[in-house]
Nucleic acid binder design. Structure first.
Length: 434
RNA sequence: GUGGUUGUAGCUUAGUUGGUUAAAGCGCCAGUUUGUGGCACUGGAGACCGUGGGUUCGAAUCCCAUCUACCACCCCA
C-alpha cells in the first residue's frame, strides 16, 4: 500500500466501532479523579525541548533516544511530549498555581510520543491518563494518589492487578545507596552480563531490573534502597504504608522497582498486570519533591502517576472484559418518494433537537434496503413515511426488537415517540423484575 | 537500536513440483413485481498477491533488498 494510505509506524487509529470503549474508560478516569478533587488540565502536545531535558533527565533513555525533536521555522528546538508531567509542571509554575490554595490537584488525558520500537503494549503515539498533586508533603498524599489510581482501575473493571511500592529515598540517602551498590556489584563484575557491566558505571540501580538469571540472582542479595533511607524518608515510607493499610489497599513492597525518569524521590509505585505481555506496567508514578524548584519554581513537594490507556485497554480486551454498549439509533425514518423524503428530514431535525438520535435515508434507497440498513445500525425503532402517511398525517412506529407497531400522529412527533420509548422501557423493566 | 515471526479483496483464508482471465466464505451493493429489517435465493462491485529489484520463455509461488505488523530484548505507560 502507498505511504499515503498507511499510518505512521507505531500509531493506531481509533475506529468508530471502538470509540465508545475509550470514551467509557476516559470518562471514568476523569470522574474518579474529580471525586478526589483533581481537576482537568490541558497542556500543549509540544514544548521547548529543554522542558523535558531538565525534568525527565538528560541521561535517561527517554530523552537520549526516544524524543521527537525538531526545529520549528523560528529556529526553536521543539519536542513532542514523551510524557505529561514535565509540561504540567511548567504550566503550574508559569501560571503561579502554587501561589493559590494548596494542594493543587490536576489530572489529564492526552497523547504522548516516543520513538520506540513498537511491541505489545508499546506504541510511538500512546495516551496517558495522569494526575499530579502539588504542595502536599505528607504520606497521606501518596496514599491518596495511589488510592485514586486503584479506584480507576477497579471501576474500569480490570482484574488481576497488583500494586508494588518502593522508596528510592531522597538525593541524600540515594548517594549512600549508590555507593554501596556500586561496591557490591564491582566485587562481582566478572559474573555480570555484558550490559550490566556498562550499567555499573552509568546507573547501578538498573542492574536490579536485569532479567538475566545471573544478574537477577546477584540482585537478590544486593543492598536494598530501603535499607539506606534516612530517618525522614524511612518515616515517610512507613507513613505511606500505614495509610494504605488503614484504607485496606493491598500492596507488596518491591525493592527492585526503579523508575526510569530522573525526577522521582521517595515513594515510587507501579500497578502491574499479567495480561498484557512484557510491558506489564499499566500505571507508574511516585513522588518528585525536587522537580518544581529544579524547573525554576518554588520549592514545593509534588507527586503523581501516569496510566497507559492503550495498555489498560489491552489488558481489558485480553480479559474479555465487558464494555457498556455503544449508543444506538433511537429511530430510523424510511421515506418513500420525494415528498416523504422532505418530511423525513423535517421530522429528524425536530427529533434531534429533542435529544433523540434519529436517522433517515440520505442515499436515495428503496424501502427494503432502508429497513436492512436500520437493522444493521441497530435502530431501536423505525417508521415508514409515504404518500398515505402524509395524507392521513399519521404513521406506524415499529419496535425493531419486539416487532410491535403503534400508530401515532405526525404532529408533536417527538413527544409521542418519547412516550412510546418510555412505556416500552417501563414494561421491559417490569419483565426483568418479575 | 538488536533479534525472531509475518504480509493474497474491507475481514478470515485457499492457491498443487513456478504455467492461461488469482479462488472461497463473511461483509458491502443491487434484485427476488416501491409498503416494512433479521431467513433464503440470484447477480454485482471489490486484489497492481506489502513495495522495489533479480532469476526465468513465464513468478502470488524461487533469490535479494526494503517497508509494515506481531513478539522479545532494551526502556517505559
Amino acid at each position: 500500500m502507498a505511504e499515503i494510505n498507511r499510518a505512521i509506524k507505531g500509531t493506531n487509529d481509533m475506529l468508530p466501532a471502538d470509540s465508545h470503549k475509550f470514551q467509557f474508560v476516559e470518562g471514568k478516569m476523569l470522574d474518579i479523579a474529580s471525586l478526589y478533587g483533581f481537576r482537568e488540565i490541558r497542556v500543549p502536545v509540544f514544548e521547548h525541548t529543554e522542558v523535558f531535558q531538565r525534568s525527565v533527565g538528560d541521561t535517561t533513555d527517554v530523552v537520549q533516544k526516544e524524543m521527537y525533536t525538531f526545529d520549528d521555522k523560528g529556529g526553536r528546538s521543539i519536542t513532542l511530549r514523551p510524557e505529561l508531567t514535565a509540561g504540567v509542571v511548567r504550566s503550574v509554575i508559569e501560571h503561579g498555581l502554587v501561589n493559590g490554595a494548596l494542594p493543587v490537584k490536576v489530572c489529564y488525558v492526552g497523547g504522548c510520543y516516543r520513538y520506540e520500537k513498537p511491541q505489545a503494549g508499546r506504541l510511538r503515539e500512546f495516551h496517558q491518563f495522569g494526575v499530579e498533586c502539588f504542595g502536599a508533603a505528607s504520606p497521606a498524599a501518596d496514599a491518596e494518589v495511589i488510592s485514586l489510581g486503584l479506584q480507576v482501575l477497579e471501576t474500569v473493571g480490570i482484574k488481576n492487578i497488583s500494586l508494588e511500592i518502593n522508596s528510592i529515598g531522597c538525593p541524600e540517602c540515594r548517594k549512600n545507596y549508590h555507593k554501596a551498590l556500586s561496591e557490591y556489584f564491582a566485587s562481582h563484575i566478572d559474573t555480570l552480563c555484558e550490559t550490566c557491566r556498562d550499567r555499573l558505571s552509568r546507573n547501578p540501580m538498573r542492574i536490579l531490573d536485569c532479567k538475566s538469571p545471573v544478574c537477577s540472582a546477584l540482585a537478590k542479595d544486593a543492598p536494598k534502597v530501603i535499607d539506606f533511607l534516612c530517618d525522614e524518608c524511612q518515616n515517610h515510607f512507613d507513613g505511606v504504608k500505614g495509610h494504605l493499610d488503614a484504607a485496606g489497599i493491598k500492596y507488596t513492597v518491591n525493592p527492585q522497582i526503579v523508575r526510569g525518569l530522573d525526577y522521582y524521590t521517595k515513594t515510587v509505585f507501579e500497578f502491574v498486570s499479567g495480561d498484557i505481555g512484557a510491558q506489564s506496567t499499566v500505571c507508574g508514578g511516585g513522588r518528585y519533591d525536587g522537580l518544581v524548584s529544579q524547573m525554576g519554581g518554588p520549592a514545593v513537594s509534588a507527586l503523581g502517576f501516569g496510566m497507559g490507556i492503550e495498555r489498560l485497554m489491552l489488558a481489558l480486551e485480553n480479559q474479555n472484559s465487558n464494555f457498556p454498549e455503544a449508543k444506538k439509533c433511537d429511530i430510523y425514518i424510511a421515506p418513500m418518494g420525494d415528498t416523504a423524503a422532505v418530511k423525513a428530514t423535517a421530522l429528524c431535525t425536530s427529533l434531534r433537537r429533542d435529544g433523540f438520535e434519529a436517522q433517515c435515508d440520505v442515499c436515495g434507497r428503496g424501502l427494503k434496503a432502508q429497513m436492512k440498513y436500520a437493522d444493521k445500525i441497530g435502530a431501536l425503532y423505525s417508521t415508514v413515511i409515504g404518500d398515505n402517511e402524509i395524507a392521513e398525517n399519521k404513521c406506524n412506529i415499529k419496535n425493531m426488537i419486539t416487532g410491535e407497531i403503534e400508530e401515532i400522529s405526525l404532529d408533536n412527533f417527538s413527544e409521542q415517540f418519547m412516550k412510546i420509548k418510555l412505556d416500552d422501557a417501563l414494561s421491559s423493566l417490569e419483565d426483568t423484575i418479575i
